[in-house]
């Protein structure tokens, strides 16, 4: 979905920006692993979470068939390609990392009728992706009613090493919770420009993952909800064009 364009980088000049074209970004090391409950987490540029020690890939809030849900409900004909696009991104991540297990962290379908509306080709692609892997659908608030007919196994929570994977963050989480549900985005405003990106939100206790779906909106991490989820503050890892950036809460602005 996002494309790498490292050649387009702005140059600081007095208080404003001018477009600079050839300044290459500093060669950045591979996204540094972060840890949670002693487990190594790799925050992937695709918006997925990679747990190398468990060869497990976690994606959250795919919201498949969101476009057709809008068409059915409100007569807004969004491009019906969101499912294909989301699956293509997932396919790319699977090809690159070859996980033994894939966990879809809830709201994998936008509504309970989503699987029924799937295009034949998309349904076949899901089956291909599932081949030879343990595939777990964690149920979310949008797709609780989806319990079979789409391959894989279904669960409300899943434990992977020291991590607990569930859709909606718990009120009193155990250390090592990985959840989704809130579609976090962070916004940086500086020198006359604002950049708004999906992000991972992390403290010592839990991780809230960004939405993976192609047409999913977002909730700003400076909204009150995140203060409740992270009473001691957090670091947001914003998904840039070329890599993931760790940004402190104080550098992020509200909507």
């Amino acid at each position: 979905m996002t494309q790498t364009r490292p050649e387009a980088a702005p140059l600081r000049h007095r208080k404003t920006i001018i477009v600079a074209v050839s300044l290459k970004l500093e060669k950045t090391p591979k996204t540094p692993g972060v840890t949670l409950a002693g487990e190594t987490l790799v925050l992937d540029l695709s918006g997925a979470l990679w747990l190398p020690e468990h060869r497990t890939l976690v994606v959250s809030d795919l919201h498949l068939e969101k476009g057709s849900a809008y068409a059915a409900r409100s007569g807004q004909f969004l491009p019906p390609y969101d499912t294909r696009e989301t699956l293509a991104c997932l396919h790319e991540a699977l090809a690159r990392l070859d996980p033994a297990r894939v966990v879809c962290l809830g709201d994998s379908f936008h509504d309970a009728q989503g699987p029924a509306r799937l295009d034949v080709a998309d349904r076949a692609l899901i089956a291909t992706l599932q081949e030879g892997r343990d595939w777990v659908w964690i149920s979310g608030n949008h797709d609780r009613a989806v319990q079979d007919g789409i391959g894989g196994r279904f669960a409300d929570t899943l434990t992977v090493g020291a991590l607990t994977l569930r859709h909606e963050p718990a009120d009193a989480p155990e250390t090592g919770e990985v959840a989704g549900h809130y579609h976090p985005v962070g916004k940086v405003a500086m020198r006359g420009r604002a950049v708004r990106r999906r992000c991972f939100v992390l403290d010592a206790t839990r991780l809230v993952m960004p939405a993976f779906g192609a047409l999913t909106g977002g909730l700003n991490v400076r909204s009150d909800r995140f203060d409740t989820l992270f009473p001691g503050g957090f670091t947001a890892h914003l998904i840039g064009d070329g890599r993931v950036f760790a940004i402190s809460r104080t550098m992020l602005t509200r909507e």
Partner: peptide, 19 residues
């Protein structure tokens, strides 16, 4: 003059540097 919409990563990198 500012030209908008380009070079998002530079902005993010600067915010990261602050951290």
């Amino acid at each position: 003059e500012r030209v908008y919409g380009e070079g998002a990563d530079e902005i993010l990198a600067e915010a990261e540097a602050a951290l």
